[in-house]
Computed example of a mutant assay.
Amino acid sequence: MNRSERVQTPARRSDEIPGRLAYSVPEVAVLLGGVTERYVWKLIDGGTGPLRSFLLGKRRVVYYEDLDTFVRELREDEQRARSAAADAA
Rank of each mutant, 00 (worst) to 15 (best):
L51I: 07
R38I: 09
D87E: 07
L74W: 05
D68T: 09
R59A: 08
V35K: 07
G19I: 04
L67G: 02
E5K: 03
F70P: 03
E78G: 05
D45K: 00
P50I: 04
A88G: 01
V61M: 02
K42P: 05
V61T: 01
M1R: 08
A88D: 01
A29K: 01
P18I: 14
L43F: 04
W41G: 09
D87K: 06
P10R: 08
L21I: 10
E76R: 06
A84F: 03
A81T: 05
Y64M: 02
L32M: 13
L21M: 09
R75W: 05
W41N: 14
E16R: 12
E76Q: 09
L67E: 01
E73F: 04
V40D: 10
G57S: 10
E78Y: 09
S53G: 01
E78T: 05
V30G: 02
V25Y: 07
S14Y: 00
L31C: 08
R6E: 15
L21A: 13
A29W: 00
A86H: 04
E78K: 06
R13Q: 15
D15W: 06
F54S: 09
G49V: 04
N2E: 12
D87P: 00
D87S: 08
V71P: 02
T9Y: 14
D15F: 07
A85I: 01
G33I: 02
S53L: 01
E16L: 13
R12A: 14
R6A: 15
F54T: 06
R60F: 12
I44E: 07
G47F: 03
R60P: 00
G46V: 11
G57Q: 12
R3L: 12
P18F: 15
G46T: 11
A81L: 09
V61K: 02
M1W: 06
Q8T: 14
L56A: 04
L31P: 14
R72E: 03
